[in-house]
Amino acid sequence: MRTTVPVLIAFISGIVLVVSFFFRKGTWLGDLEQEFTVWLTIVGGFTLLLGVVSITRVNWTAVKRKKEGWKYKILTLIAIFAMAIPSVLSPDWSPLFGRAEGSIYDWLFQYQMSPMMATMFATLAFYIASAAFRAFRARSLEATLLLVTATLIMLWRIPMGEWFLNLFPGDIPYLLNTYIMGGINMAVQRGIIIGAALGAASMSLRIILGIERTYMGKG
């Protein structure tokens, strides 16, 4: 029962979406896709609650048992509710509620979350530099080719580098854009994309038909 029902639901949902694709909108079959997608957005919205429950339970348990770093977990809990509760309260009660400009949510988002997220993303530059320094070695012919190409592309993407490349005869920036980015890069990307798309389609089919059940812990 615990396997059959989910497999059946997956089968029906999958088949309905595939069949509906081939029927005109406005017909019963054609409109089923719309019906299912609306259900998906509703069900998906409810699942967000699961996350709140999980993160609260994990952190609350740690606080209760005074596990290592429990004080930080109190901060996590405060942060969750400080952001969530005012955002769901009606702005009619106070301009601090809701998500409009000037609300608590907006302040926390604009002046705390947003800069923190941008900072985390910015650390990528440090990591890329460190990884390039450590891992980018001309150990073989292939690695050397990769290294030279990467260097040329990095030069091409900056004004100073472009100026430098233009000191050499032949339109190197044009050649890089046409043959490296629009040629070799594109061919490789397409190969991976086609392969991955086929893999995804094949896996979807296995799921719809109930052959692949590993995502439920079965098989």
Binding site: A129, F133, T151, M154, I158, P159, G161
Partner: peptide
Amino acid sequence: GMSAQSLVHLLIIFLVILGN
């Protein structure tokens, strides 16, 4: 922002050469 990006790209190129 292109000025900062230019310098960081040049630095990475320098680091790759230095690393090799």
